[in-house]
Design a protein around this nucleic acid. Structure first.
Length: 768
RNA sequence: GGGCCCGUGGUCUAGUGGCUAUGACGUCGCCCUGACGUGGCGAAGGUCGCCGGUUCGAAUCCGGCCGGGCCCACCA
């Protein structure tokens, strides 16, 4: 009699692995036919040899949302994807194959990229399984599939036909390292120590003025010198001319109130292009652009004798020359911000190139409305999107001069320049395919295929359309995208890229807002609150944690730890603490498993009391799940389980449970009732241990269960909680102080408020 | 320069006007009972960032400051 069904006394990673294998065999989480539908547009991670533990944790948190929605009764569409387009794999191939992309046959290079990506694809999938993501990992989509790229191209073609895409030759952010134009959203700034050079510019009428600049190498591109209109020092010079040092060209002096008289000498030279201010000033003053830099970031013929030098070399050289000529007045050390490419962190130059643009400026107001309509978790991050929307002043350059991306599906007639746009639906590679038609304008068959690819955000930004069957399965699209609730979970770092571009593209294509819910997770930092990076040597890899503590412990830890949307520190010590909680849960179940399951019988007061507290924990936890923030409910649930249930209820009823009468059955019934509900409530967070326990004791799997219903039947019993806990603690303490064992007899009175529980309390404490 | 967020014992965390501020992890004692490699009891540890205001009463509301983080922006 009363033998536990659960044998293990300690939770273990091996049991967890066994559960994962079991689930894989059973094949789970097919998308079903029923409604309501809940769509989760999970960020497809980029494959690589290492996965950041913080990223891994955020996927676990998304899975908790998916599982909790399922248990709430939703049919959850939760696809898993891998993002494979773009620059990182190109670098990887260049580095590990020791080749230069530009000097390598494109077709072969693309093949090498694919092979490299495949190598890490499985690695990612394995970590996802260990994290116990309940999405369809086996049928994960990839953004470089022909089908996916065909959809990206189809959306390009549609927007092209609607006149939202155009080509223009404009100054843009140019990454010399990656040899491509990039969008403002991909630009970051870093603070750097730099030098401010004070240079003498001779005046045409004689004498000279002093101009301060950080970019002396760009003097060749100078087409205007500006002063503040109210600056008394220079009022007389407005309209006069200066002579550029080295080059001898004459340049006009003009007044513009944007000039800060306090900075440098209060006199500014405007060059093509030192920074984004120059770009604006060039447009404003209709200046003549001179291409001083080429695509490799080297100076051109325009720069005279400095042609062929890199920016750095040219700067040193020209400073030296100026010094020799006595034109360098002084050099000042300053800190300034330089724009860098978010992917490769190298400095960006502003260069004019012909690029394709997608209109975005005219959509900003509508997108602000959409930002307001969506529910944000947590609310505060909405501001980041609004800030970004408010800073958009130009359209989105979408063409990239790279190889591993979705090709721009266009051909140009070599004879008459006609642009051929193919029919949507297929995946086109114009750099190696012929369109197979005659030019409708001139009849020529001589075409030049477009060689550029699209910004990878053009692909990723339609993930929610791809997963809901847009342009492929109208029925599915209607049920999921149009009728379902859609959630976008993602990190703070990609609000202005992935989130913004998704909202823009989906709105342009469907006229709808892409999501009802936006859930923003915080970033995982190291134990001291610093970013994890290889250079700091503070990186923790998910495999390490998964091998040592398992996915359940990591998931439980992440829920115990931080509130949604805030950064949090990752601590092994605390993950270990989470693991201990799992062992405690296992042992609670082990105890319960000693007793048979019975039909509901007449309950004693103690039983009703714990059920009232169970309901309280339940209500809090369910509410937390509703708000996609299980953290809000988990502390109370843990307290209920470990303290009220394990320490108080179980101890109070231990004696009664060992009888074999109706009163014992009441305990048995209650024990199982509580355990089942606790398991159901915890199942989304710790899927392995809850299912292990469930399958050991009950029918089926806990993951096929629904959340328990709220039941306030015994609500009034909650008022006893404080007294019961207080009374028990008092007795424990008293026995302790008197050196008595907990089993030994004690003489005391049960307070009259606790009369309903007197029997259980007397047996528990052995009160005579 | 503008904006946003945050600031509770060593660490994490509950708590949006009201009993001596919650709990966890960790630390230090003691104890072990038949679900528990665990558990129980106890101890140390916080002027709830600082200052002022509102109020009978503030961690909680208001203002200012300090500190930390983030975003945006034209300092060449």
């Amino acid at each position: 009699m009363f033998q536990p069904k659960i044998k293990e006394k300690v939770w273990s990673v091996d049991i967890e692995k066994g559960m994962i294998e079991l689930w894989m065999k059973e094949g789970w989480y097919e998308f079903e036919e029923k409604e309501p539908i809940f769509v989760i547009d999970t960020p497809p991670p980029y494959p690589g040899p290492f996965w950041h533990i913080g990223a891994a944790i955020s996927y676990a948190q998304q899975d908790i949302i998916a599982r909790s929605r399922r248990m709430k009764g939703y049919n959850v569409l939760y696809p898993i994807g891998i993002d494979r387009n773009g620059i990182p794999v190109e670098w990887y191939v260049e580095k590990y194959e020791g080749i230069d992309m530009w000097k390598y046959p494109r077709e072969k290079f693309v093949e090498l990229c694919r092979t490299a990506l495949d190598k890490y694809d499985d690695n990612m999938a394995n970590i996802m399984r260990r994290l116990m993501l309940s999405g369809d990992i086996d049928h994960r989509y990839r953004t470089d599939l022909d089908e996916y790229r065909a959809l990206t191209q189809a959306t390009f073609i549609e927007l092209w036909k609607r006149g939202l895409i155009y080509e223009a030759n404009r100054p843009n952010n140019w990454c010399p390292r990656c040899r491509t134009t990039i969008a403002d959203a991909e630009v970051e700034y870093k603070t750097e120590k730099g030098k401010l050079y004070y240079i003498k510019f001779p005046l045409k009428k004689g004498g000279h003025v002093l101009i301060a600049t950080t970019r002396p190498e760009l003097i060749a591109g100078c087409d205007l010198v500006l002063v503040h209109p109210e600056d008394d020092r220079y009022k007389d010079l407005i309209g006069k001319k200066v002579i550029l040092p080295i080059y001898g060209r004459e340049v006009k002096i003009a007044a513009d109130k944007e000039v800060d008289p306090e900075f440098g000498t209060g006199m500014e030279m405007v060059c093509s292009y030192g920074d984004s201010v120059d770009v604006r000033l060039f447009r404003k003053w209709r200046l003549k652009e001179r291409k001083v830099l080429d695509i490799d970031g080297k100076l051109t013929e325009e720069a005279g004798k400095y042609a062929g030098l890199s920016v750095k070399e040219a700067r040193e050289k020209i400073v030296e020359d100026l010094r020799k000529e006595g034109l360098l007045e002084k050099v000042e050390e300053i800190e300034h911000k330089v724009p860098i490419h978010d992917k490769c962190k190298s400095e960006i130059e502003i260069i004019s190139m012909p690029e394709y643009y997608l209109k975005q400026v005219e959509f900003v107001e509508e997108l602000k409305k959409i930002a307001d309509e969506m529910k944000w978790y947590p609310k505060k991050h909405k501001q980041r999107l609004l800030d970004w929307l408010n800073s958009i002043t130009m359209d989105w350059p979408i063409s990239r001069r790279r190889y591993y991306g979705t090709e721009i599906p266009l051909w140009y007639c070599k004879k008459c320049g006609y642009i051929h746009v193919p029919k949507p639906g297929r995946y086109y590679k114009p750099w190696k395919e012929k369109p197979g038609i005659k030019c409708p304008k001139c009849g020529s068959e001589d075409w030049k295929g477009e060689e550029r690819t699209l910004d990878t955000w053009m692909d990723s930004s339609i993930s929610v359309l791809y997963i809901t069957g847009y342009k492929k399965d109208e029925e599915k699209f209607k049920r999921t995208f149009l009728k379902g609730e859609k959630l976008r979970p993602q990190g703070t770092d990609i609000i202005r890229t992935w989130l913004y571009y998704s909202l823009l593209r989906v709105y342009q294509l469907t006229g709808k807002r892409a999501f009802e819910h936006v859930w923003i997770n915080g970033m995982g930092l190291d134990e001291k609150g610093r970013k994890m990076s290889k250079s700091l040597g503070n990186v923790i890899y998910p495999e390490e944690i998964l091998d040592e503590y398992g996915g359940d412990a990591l998931r439980f830890y992440s829920v115990m730890e931080g509130a949604v949307g805030d950064d949090y520190r990752i601590s092994k010590e605390r993950i270990e603490g989470a693991f201990k909680s799992l062992t405690k849960l296992l042992n609670i179940a082990r105890y319960v498993s000693m007793f048979p399951q019975v039909e509901e019988v007449e309950l004693e007061e103690t039983d009703k009391w714990i059920l009232s507290e169970l309901n309280e924990a339940k209500e809090r936890m369910l509410k937390a799940y509703d708000e996609f923030d299980p953290h809000k409910g988990i502390h109370h649930l843990r307290k209920f389980t470990h303290e009220l249930f394990a320490s108080h209820y179980i101890e109070m009823t231990k004696e009664r449970a060992r009888e074999n009468d109706e009163k014992a059955k009441a305990v048995w019934y209650t024990l199982h009732q509580v355990l089942k509900d606790v398991l159901r409530l915890l199942a989304p967070i710790v899927p392995a241990i809850t299912d292990y326990i469930w399958r050991s004791l009950y029918e089926g799997s806990v993951h096929k269960e629904k959340f328990p219903k709220v039941d306030r039947k015994y609500e009034k019993y909650r008022k006893y909680t404080e007294r019961i806990v207080g009374f028990n603690e008092k007795i424990w303490k008293e026995k302790k102080e008197r050196g008595l064992s907990l089993k030994s007899e004690i003489k005391t009175e049960v307070p009259k408020e606790l009369k309903p529980f007197e029997g259980d309390l007397r047996r528990m404490h052995n009160i005579k």
